[in-house]
């Protein structure tokens, strides 16, 4: 008889890489739904564009590298496309998503050797390239739909994405302008602009994009991502250290600064419910490939990202800072990992 001989363990957990990726993708759904609810169908269009571009690029790359294109089934390219699509402004031109996804797959991932080998988070690398290369298109965020003066149908959005103009001939810039002629931006954008215009934080909050202490729409989106993230934690897909450390340190850092100078900085609750905070905490920072893997290292890594986010948000040139912070921290990961080796059983500390 020809026996099947393999090395122990013969038992394996039934959670493959593709399952892990899929779980993360599923966990994004509440957040995506919230985004669609507040910012329209454009979000889905961007996601679809990015995913398609990412998958196609991945297949081409695998072919070029003489790998089986069945590796596409590991869902990693799918997740990269999804994460990038989520980050894009809903009504950004279609080629933005395509360029970003291609860059993310080709340059940030495959050139490094494919899955598991990349130093930088592909989605964030793609996003940063877009932000640096096409700053205008990348910052044209739409205000929540209920604040827009014109009715914006799904068809209109698709037209804007692919042609630049809606059915009635309105451009994106027009949608972003409120009744009183003030351009409506994201809450973080608004705070940054307001503060630089010598407004106090309380005055800024009077803008119509804010609802009391939170940015309309953005808070809900963040909470939805938090929900998805908690599900991932519960499923033990991601480790608690990175998201918890990240949110806690961002909260503490801005809390301290807010207490010191409440007029010149967004309050900590606003900080953790604005922009990409929650999305980053559970879906970007926890990217297994580019994050630290040691217990202590994960805490240091998340702390580093939080500090960078805080610094860039408040004193940097960009209203949102997660992408830059993540890429900068990615570079430190090998070092962090090396110096945070856990104490092995039976070895004295040190």
């Amino acid at each position: 008889m020809n026996f099947k001989v393999s090395s122990s363990p013969h038992n394996r957990i039934k959670r493959k890489t593709s399952d892990v990726m899929l779980a993360v993708i599923l966990a994004c759904i509440p957040g995506i739904l919230a985004q669609v609810w507040y910012f329209g169908i454009g979000v889905l269009v961007q996601i679809a564009l990015a995913i398609t571009a990412a998958l196609l690029t991945e297949i081409i790359c695998l072919r070029q590298r003489n790998r089986s294109f069945m590796q596409i089934k590991d869902n990693s390219a799918l997740l990269t496309g999804l994460l990038l699509g989520i980050c894009l402004p809903p009504l950004a031109p279609w080629w933005i998503a395509v360029i970003g996804a291609c860059f993310a797959i080709v340059i940030a991932k495959q050139i490094y050797g494919g899955l598991g080998q990349n130093l930088f988070n592909p989605a964030m690398a793609g996003y940063v390239v877009l932000l640096v290369s096409f700053p205008l298109a990348m910052t044209l965020w739409l205000p929540p739909l209920n604040l827009i003066e014109y009715s914006l149908s799904a068809w209109d959005m698709i037209l804007v994405i692919f042609t630049g103009y809606s059915d009635q001939g309105y451009s994106l810039a027009q949608f972003r302008t409120s009744l009183d002629g003030i351009t409506m931006a994201t809450p973080l954008d608004a705070i940054k602009t307001g503060l630089s215009n010598q407004q106090t934080y309380q005055e800024i909050l009077q803008q119509n994009i804010f609802n009391h202490d939170f940015g309309i729409g953005w808070m809900q989106v963040n909470l939805a991502y938090l929900l998805g993230g908690l599900w991932l934690l519960q499923r033990k897909i991601i480790n608690w250290r990175i998201p918890l450390t990240f949110i806690a340190s961002l909260f503490l850092l801005s809390g301290i600064c807010y207490l010191a100078s409440p007029q010149s900085i967004a309050d900590p609750l606003m900080q953790i419910t604005s922009g990409a905070t929650m999305f980053a905490a559970f879906f970007i920072l926890t990217d297994p490939v580019t994050a630290s893997t040691t217990p202590k290292g994960r805490i240091i890594y998340a702390l580093l990202v939080a500090s960078l986010v805080f610094v860039i948000r408040n004193w940097g040139g960009y209203p949102e800072a997660v992408a830059f912070a993540v890429l900068l921290a990615n570079m430190c990961v090998p070092l962090i990992d090396y110096y945070t080796k856990p104490r092995t059983y039976g070895h004295v500390k040190g």
């Binding site: 892990v20 990693s76 899955l115 080998q117 580019t290 893997t293 040691t294 217990p295 856990p342 092995t344």
Partner: peptide
Amino acid sequence: QACIRCGYCADACPASL
């Protein structure tokens, strides 16, 4: 498959390796 550096192994190791 390729290691995706998920770190589950480190979390599972009883010897903290």
